[in-house]
Structure formats: C-alpha cells, structure tokens
Design a protein around this nucleic acid. Structure first.
Lengths: 343, 343
DNA sequence: TTGAAAGCGCTACCAG
DNA sequence: CTGGTAGCGCTTTCAA
C-alpha cells in the first residue's frame, strides 16, 4: 500500500496524498475527505522510512541507558519513553552493558538519522562530541562536561549530598563510612565531593571510604568492609545510591547483627521505589525524576526544533527524604515520614 | 557523506561501495581496501534508512512492555535489548502505560518496517493478528492465544503454581489467601488456575482471593484485606507476582504485626532481584528469564529469516525457589536456600 | 489548491 | 568481479 495506490483510488495525484498526510499542508476539504476515505479502505499507512529518507529526520530519538539493574534507571526510562511517545517520537533503546559499543551507537545515530539522543550512560566527552559533530543534539542526563557544548539536566548531587551530610552530622553521628560508586562515575564523584566536603566543613572526622558498583550486593559487601575497617565506633553509613544503601541496611541488620538506625544510621541517594518499602524506609536524597525527564525531553525537542540554540545546563535540586534509617536529631529514630515525602 | 562521495574518493563505482558494506557480497580485496580507506577518511556510515527503504527490512524490532514499575520487566527488557543488539538488531521500545496506543504501534510497525515484535504486554488476540497480517512476525512473551498463529515463549505458570501449592500444602498450611493480578492478565489467570486447582486436588480449603494490580502497594493492601476476611486462622498468602508478595510480607510484619513465616507464610512468582534481598528472602517460583529471552530472540530471528515457518509455542518450566518466607515441611522456617537457588 | 517531476541514499539486477 | 541503472515511497519545489 503506497501513496500511489491511495492516489489512484481517490482519483488525485500522489503529491496530493502526501499533502493530506502532512499536518498543516494545503489541501481542500474535498480532497482530504476522498484521500482519507481511500486510505482507510486500503489500510494505508505512510511509510515512515521513506519519509525519513527525504526529510532527513526519522522521528526517532535514541535513549542510552547504562544499567537497568540499578533500579533508578527503569524509572527514568519509563518516564522518558512515555513522554517521548506522547510527543510523537519513537524511542530507540540502547543499553550499554559493558561500556563498550558506544561507537556502534554512533553508527546508528547517523545511519538511522536519529533526531536526538538522551544519554544516561557514562559516555566520554569525546563520544558526546562525536554525536554533536554529526549534527545530533544530545541531552545528558545526570552528567555534563564543561568543555562539551551539550545540554544537560542534572540533579544537584553536591547540594543533595550536603543536605544529607548536614542532617546526619547534626544528628550527632561521629564515625562515618561512605560507599562511593565506580570511580569513573560523574554522579558518584559529585555526591562524594558534596558529602565529604560538607562533613569536613562541619568538623566531622573523615569517613572511611570504600567503592561499590551501584548494586545491592556491593553495598552489602561495602557495609561489612566498613564495619571491619572502622570498628564498633561506626555509627553511620552513607551510600552513593539507594541500591547500595539497601544492601548496606541488610548487611548491618543481618550479617553484622546491629540495628538500623539504633546502632548505625544509613542513607542513600536517588529515591527509588524500593527505598520506600516498609522493610527499609530508607532515608535518601530523592531525585525529582518526573521534573528531570520532562526537562530532558523538552530540552531535546527544543534543540531539534532549533539546532542553533545554545546548550543549556539545567540543575534541579534533590530533596532530602528523611525516613526511618537515620537517627532523629534528638538521637531517637527519625520521624516516620519527612515533609518532603508528601510530594 | 554518501556512498557516492566514498565511491568518488576511492575511484570506484557507487555500487562497489554498497557491496563492500554488504556482508558477504562480492568485492575484491583491493576494492574493499580502497573503499574502506576512503570511507574511513570521510567518516562515512551507510544510511540505514535508505537501506531499509530498498530492502524492506529495517533491522529494527519492536519490544512492547506494559509496565516497567513491575520490576520483572526491566530484567526482561535488559536481556532482550542486550541479545538483540548482539544480533545486530535495534530495539524500538514501546511502553504501554494505559493499555491504549496499541494501534499507534501498529502504525509504526508498518511505517518503520519493523522486522518483528516481541510483546510482553497484554495485547488482545485481534491486535496480535493485526501485526501478523501486516507481515510482521510476533513473539509473545508469557502469553499466547490458541487461535492466533503467533509464536510464544511462556513460563509454565500452571506448573509453577502447582509446585508452590504442593509445597505449601505439604508444609501443613490450612487457611490460604491468594492475591491475583488484574483479571484480564493471562499470567494471573494461569497462575491462579494452577494454584487453586492444585490446592483443591489436595483437599485444602478454598482460599480467600483478592485481586491486585501487580504493584507493591496492592500486595500490601491485599494482605491486610485477606487478614480481615480470613481472620486469625490465615496462615499462608500466595501472590501472583513477587512485587505484591513483597508488599504482603511488609504488611504482615508491619501493619498486622505477625511473623513471616512464623505466623503466616508468603510466596510470590517471578524471581525478581529484590525478592532475594536479605530483608525478604522470598519463596517464589522463578522464571528463567535468560532462557526465556534467549528463546524469544531466537524464535523471532528464525521467523524473520523464514516467514513461512510455522508458529511455535515454547513452554519453559519455572523453578521453585524455597527461601525464607515459607515454613519448612517440619513446620519450622524453611532452609535458607533452596537447591534451585544455586542457579 | 493541485499535479508533475526531481530527488533522498541505498540495494539489486543487469550486462560487461 | 565490476559498473551502470532502475527503483524503494515519500517530500518538496515548481508551474499550472
């Protein structure tokens, strides 16, 4: 079923059919009606591939996600997908299991004429530049490069980390352990910097730091290692993301046989769904995923509409969600729900 | 950068360039070398859109997922994505938030010449037929229709449910509650049928049944409702998926103040990652996601290679993973890890 | 408003 | 093995 078939059946020219299917094109009501009728009878659907070939735009955007096992990303992906499809864009999904294959994505970007990319993976500055050089706008989700003119939407990790540090120091914790993410993770670097920096400002003893990989198991292991390193004085563990914090909670309660937050307070980052589950009620810094994905989509769409638009780096504050894994300011377990939790 | 540019630079014909980039086409080593060199210098990438237009195949497959908040699906999606990209296929992602929009996907299927579809969403028989009628092979993930000639890969929900029923009845539970999924869910129907059927066979009193929506919160609510309905005799709750079972565990331990499995045993279905976390150690029937996704991909690729191939319905047994939320056969809490858990 | 015609970049079929 | 040539189905000038 091509536009020629429809044109023939409707007794109009092929270009007429094309125009009828192009929103905002000139076609008389009469023609429109006949074409639509014919198209309907024939079950005609415009061929998006052919359209892309002529127009140079595919109506597809690439979404690059590094790791769907970190439960923060399914939430992001889900939102992005819904928003893009609401805007008439298809989502081509790229999951970067092993950091490899970025250049193959580059090939696809030009090959499939992707209209844009939102990346929530750990791309290098050079890789991002490659996309840009190919004329493909990029919005970086939760990372950004000073020297690369790509737009980005970031949660303010430093600020969030400082919030957390402040709150925990004020609650009187003395001996901290910190579980960072992979060392090449921008997010981890920011959160680490913010947390340790603020702690230092407040005159708290420097925490023991171990690195994890953002997974539950690594948080579990890290908590045990911290306990070993820091000894019984350890009274607070902060993890660079919720997944690890959940693992840490379980390790402390289980393997270590200590209470949370009675003996050791624990906090994370992200505000993933499982962190709210009753078994955890994890204190965390929540990223406003909805606002962030919305911003990401808007920014990308804007750049697609006007490629000359200068890159924009938007930063959104995270919200401290004080729940049940951190002692209260009076030394007692914190209130069940922080005010921020209502959102 | 088009193949003409490369051809010109390499001093060969455009068709030559095309052949060099088509795997398994005839081109002398000399030509290949010169073309590749020229292409490299020019940063040429074949235009997949144009290729799709002529060949009629896009090298894209659609993956339809209903709900990424059910943590079973991110696992599936992650696997599918990795496997498809390993096979040189791009994944066009469709998330079906509200069951609507299936027909828009249909449009995309024909518009983007999708080579195939794997659907893990609740499509109707008619919708699946529509895809098939358009010449787009479909593999149904965890559902199938008797009267629609689509291939499918299913976990044997009935069998798995029977395993669970047997094990729990043998452990001496008397008063069961069952939390089903949405009534229009094939998976839920199968699991419900298997579970209730086996219980009846074993002469166990008919369980109280309430319906959930596969989410944590609904499992939480359902457990409380079951406790209200069934009274203090209630000693086992089985949920149609892990997410709800996790909610149920928390409800029983928290709101109801009973022990799991001391007072009430709880089990789920799927074998999602969080079900293994120390706070839960949920007894469940694990779906072999890796084998299932592998089968799904293979089947779809086979159909794409040979469209005349008859549909195939493959069924893979689930594995009972006895963990810590169900009483042991001696009435004591079950062994920490079932043998199946080693996998 | 409408129709004719020229491509978009590639594949595939042909003859050489 | 190689080069010419005819499209794939659509959008988009350009005249009418």
């Amino acid at each position: 079923m091509t536009s020629y078939d429809v044109a023939h059946r409707a007794g109009v020219s092929q270009s007429g059919v094309s125009r009828v299917f192009k929103p905002g094109a000139s076609a008389s009501a009469a023609m429109r009606a006949r074409v639509l009728a014919a198209a309907d009878e024939l079950g005609y659907r415009p061929n998006a591939i052919a359209r892309s070939l002529t127009t140079g735009r595919s109506n597809m955007v690439g979404v690059i996600i590094s790791d769907l096992t970190n439960l923060y990303y399914p939430e992001v992906l889900s939102e992005l997908s819904a928003r893009f499809s609401g805007r008439g864009k298809r989502v081509l999904l790229f999951t970067l299991a092993r950091e490899a294959g970025v250049d193959s994505i580059l090939g696809d970007v030009v090959g499939y004429q992707l209209d844009g990319i939102v990346s929530a993976a750990r791309l290098s500055a050079g890789q991002v530049s490659d996309f840009l050089d190919r004329g493909c706008p990029v919005v970086l989700y939760n990372r950004s490069f000073d020297d690369v003119p790509a737009s980005s939407i970031c949660c303010d990790h430093v600020h969030g980390a400082r919030l957390l540090a402040t709150r925990m120091a004020e609650a009187g914790h003395h001996r901290f352990g910190f579980v960072s993410g992979p060392t090449d993770s921008f997010v981890s670097q920011e959160r680490t910097r913010g947390f340790l920096g603020r702690l230092a400002e407040m005159g708290v003893a420097e925490p023991a730091v171990v690195a994890g990989d953002y997974g539950y198991a690594s948080g579990h292991a890290a908590a045990r290692e911290l306990a070993r390193e820091a000894g019984p004085a350890l009274d607070a563990i902060v993890c660079a993301n919720d997944m690890m914090a959940l693992g840490a909670v379980d390790a402390v309660r289980g393997s270590l046989g200590r209470r949370v937050p009675g003996d050791i307070s624990i906090a994370g980052f992200d505000g993933i769904d499982p962190a709210r589950w009753d078994s955890y009620r994890l204190t965390t810094v929540r990223q406003p995923v909805r606002r962030m994905t919305q911003a990401a989509v808007e920014m990308l769409l804007d750049h697609m509409a006007d490629p000359s638009r200068p890159p924009e780096r938007r930063m959104i504050p995270g919200e401290l969600a004080v729940r049940a894994t951190v002692r209260g300011l009076d030394g007692a377990p914190a209130a069940e729900l922080g005010a921020a939790d209502a959102a």
